[in-house]
Design a protein around this nucleic acid. Sequence first.
DNA 1: TTATTTTTATACCAATCAGTACAAAATAAA
DNA 2: TTTATTTTGTACTGATTGGTATAAAAATAA
Lengths: 202, 202
Amino acid sequence: MSTTKSTSHPGRPRAFCPDQALDRALQVFWQKGYEGASLSDLTTAMGINRPSLYATFGDKKTLFRKALDRYEQGPGGYVPEALNQPTARAVVEALLRGAAKVQTASCNPGGCLFVHGALSTGTESEALRQELIARRGAGENTIRERLERAQTEGDLPASVNPADLARFVVTVIHGMAVQAASGATLADLERVIDLAMGAWPA
Amino acid sequence: MSTTKSTSHPGRPRAFCPDQALDRALQVFWQKGYEGASLSDLTTAMGINRPSLYATFGDKKTLFRKALDRYEQGPGGYVPEALNQPTARAVVEALLRGAAKVQTASCNPGGCLFVHGALSTGTESEALRQELIARRGAGENTIRERLERAQTEGDLPASVNPADLARFVVTVIHGMAVQAASGATLADLERVIDLAMGAWPA
DNA sequence: TTATTTTTATACCAATCAGTACAAAATAAA
DNA sequence: TTTATTTTGTACTGATTGGTATAAAAATAA
C-alpha cells in the first residue's frame, strides 16, 4: 500500500482514515450494542486490524465512548438544534420529530445508540451501562432547564412541572427508539408524535 | 440430600423445584438480558448445575423462551386484565398504570423483559431478537383490536385511528421501560402517565 | 545508504462462552 | 438384594471473547 500522505512525521503512514473508521464502529455499536459488537465485527467493518484499532482508539470501552461522543455530535445534533426553537412547544415538537427522523433514517441502524448501546448488560459492562444512564439523564436535565426558562419567559403555563414534561418527552423519544429498532417507519412515528403533541397543556 | 418426594417414577428424585428455578432464571434474564446472562449467572441464581438445567429446560435459548412465557403469565398479566376494562380510556389507563407498576416493583428488576431481553444483539441471537419484536408486535395488535372494538361500541371517537393510538400506547410503555431500567420510580412514571393521558382525544 | 520511527499483518494468549461426557448418587421396581 | 432409571456433581470440550507479542513493511531523517 502506498498512500503517500506527507504527515510530517517519520514512520509508516496510517493506511486508513480514523474519522471514517470511527463512523463505521459507531454503526456497528448502534446496531448490535456494546456487548453484541465483537472485536471481529468492529475490525471487519472498520477495515482495519486489531493492533491498528488499539493503537488508534484504545480498548473496546474507550472506542465505545468515542462512538458515543461522535453520536452526540452527529446524529444527536438535532437536540441542541431543537433547544434553540423559540417556544417550549416548538422545542418539544422539534425534539420529537428530530428523534423520529434520526431513528428511522435508512442510512443508519434503527433506534438510538444511547438507548440500545448498553441497556441491559452482563456484570462486566455494568459501568458502561451506568454511564449511559447518566448521559440520558443529562439530556433530560438539559430539556428540563430549557422548559424552566420557557416558563420564566411566560412561554409555558405555570401549572406545568418542567421536570415532568421533560421526562414525558424523553420517555416518548426512548419509546420511539424501541419502535424504530423493531422496524417502525418514520410515518409510523410521525403519527405517534401527533398524538403525543395532543397532550400539550392548553 | 433427601427430599423424599414420591413422584411415582424410578430414578433419583429432582432436588429442586422447576417453577422456582424458572422464576430465578426469569429474574436474571430480566436484569441482564439474554446475552448478558451467562450460564454461570443462571445456574448460580437457580441453585442448580448445568446438566440439571439442560435436562429440565433445554438449552439457553429454550430456557429464555420459557422465561418469556412465564413473564407473560406473571408480571405481564396486567395486559389481559387491562383489556377487560369497560371503556377504551379505562383500558389505556390500566395498561399504562399496570406497566408502570410492574416495571418499578422493588421485588423485580426494573423495566420490561420484552424490551430489554434482546433489544440489540450479536448475530448469534438475531433470531431471538426478531422473536421478541414479533411478540411486542402481537401485543400491540391485541391492543389495537380492543380499541377497534371500542370504536364499534361507540366508545372511541371515529376520528381516532386505533392502530395509531395502540402504537402510541406501546411507545409510552416501552419508553417507561427504559426509564424504569434507568432508575425511575413509580411516582416518576405516574406523572408521565398523567401527561400521556392528557393526550386523550376529547 | 543506514538508522529511526510508526503502522501493519500474522499469530498467538488466557479467560470465558455454551454445551456435554461420565461416573457417583439416589430412588423405584423386581 | 439386584436391576433399572433418573439426577447430580465434576470435569471437560471446542469455539469465541478481548487483548497483545513480534516481526515485516513503509515512511522520514541523517
